[in-house]
Design a protein around this nucleic acid. Structure first.
Lengths: 242, 242
DNA sequence: GTCTATAAGATGATAGAC
DNA sequence: GTCTATCATCTTATAGAC
């Protein structure tokens, strides 16, 4: 349930003169298998995130992982399935954490559920991960890109994240029982856009603000995003909404 | 200043048995030149938007435009310059419209500038274009994707759109003179995310809301986005902000 | 499990005829 | 201005040796 530490490249260059020093015969190198598989996932995650799915070749991933492209197909069959594995790996972790966070918030707040509280419980796990490892930062930037791709933005995102979003909205609904569904969904849409642009870490805001804001400054972002979105939810879902 | 109507493909298939029927000799076909150039831009816009820059080949663009890939390089030298031309074409139009809209709002509101008014003046031209032609929808979805690409999200977006954004913030500042710059920039960052996700039109919100919201329903989006963002700006820039 | 070799085709870009 | 032909390289994926 905790993050997998990004393993450093180990057998970067094993091509030499002598016949390659493989695992000792007599015992299937079970550990190494998982090692390479994970290393491929790590490298693919980084490259897909940095350059986009289509700009990355299986060869490039293989090379950076210290293997050949044949190994990519051995473990993942196709490039697309490699992507799916990359995407699902941390999505599963994130979904568990978000669900747990929302559950915990609902339990401890009892009847005093607030919009701020719900949104904070939803955002905190994700933004915390963003502050953790390079791997998570790559992954979350990849989510931001996928979320804006015409086909994938609908399908992949829906498949991966819908249950938690419905859960979030159900908690917010407890804080605003009078809110109409349409308004709740549009409000989430705006919040989602704000979150995804944050995960993208494009440094746009750094330039725009002339260095006064920094894309990766989670401590500055989280409280502001919570307040911004909560006020937004209230203004379009509240009693005064048209 | 109005939108260029998307021209239908005209000379789709001129490859046949006879030597290709080119323009009549004696007069350089000036009109046709611009025709093809624009058609290439239209087609590239559509394909870059639908599949992403890296997934589209110059051959594919050429074919859809009823020409050969050599013509792409004749008019634009490189694939990247083709992209830049696609991106700049409507960015220029949009920038003029947004500036004019902000100017007009500031003029007619005098001293009574409101956050809602400024945001509405900023958003309205863009969302109106989204409701106009396929070409504009493709373009705006492309902007959303570019805005989340690691390199381009910073550089291309900054180069193309920063002046209008600074203008928007300067108008909002008149409505909230006490607001700190950092807060204004972060608030814009959230608004920008909400806008870009809207421009992407991924149908995610349609699925999530089980059809209650439609990605292209500008009449539903604009007023909600204005209220949502205005409330957000006030909540993190207002006197009560920490 | 890991490699080399290769199939089968696509890619960005250019040269040169017309 | 538009084309065909081509270069040199890269692409995903597979076959088969070890």
């Amino acid at each position: 349930m905790s993050a997998a530490p990004a393993p450093a490249l180990k057998n970067v260059k094993k091509k030499a003169t002598a016949p390659s020093p493989r695992a000792k015969p007599g015992r299937p190198p079970r550990a190494l298998d998982q090692d390479l598989r994970e290393r491929i996932l790590d490298v693919a995650e980084e490259q897909f995130s940095k350059h986009g799915y289509d700009a990355v070749s299986t060869r490039a991933v293989a090379k950076a992982a210290g293997a050949t492209s044949a190994m990519i197909h051995y473990y993942f069959s196709t490039k697309r399935e490699l992507f799916d594995a990359v995407f699902a790996r941390r999505a599963d972790i994130l979904n568990v954490e978000r669900m747990a966070s929302l559950d915990a918030y609902e339990k401890r707040s009892g009847k005093d559920v607030s919009v701020e509280g719900a949104i904070e419980a939803f955002l905190a796990p994700t933004l915390a991960r963003m502050d953790e490892t390079e791997g998570w930062r790559y992954y979350l930037a990849l989510v931001a890109q996928v979320g804006h791709k015409p086909q994938w933005g609908g399908e992949v995102m829906t498949r991966s994240f819908d249950p938690v979003i419905q859960r979030l909205i159900s908690v917010i609904r407890k804080a605003m029982p009078e809110a109409a569904d349409v308004n709740l969904y549009w409000a989430y849409h705006f919040l989602s856009g704000a979150l995804l642009l944050t995960l993208a870490e494009t440094d746009r805001i750094d330039r725009l603000s002339n260095g006064q804001c920094r894309s990766a400054d989670i401590d500055a972002i989280l409280p502001r995003m919570v307040r911004f979105a909560a006020a937004g939810f209230r203004s379009i879902c509240g009693a005064a909404a048209k």
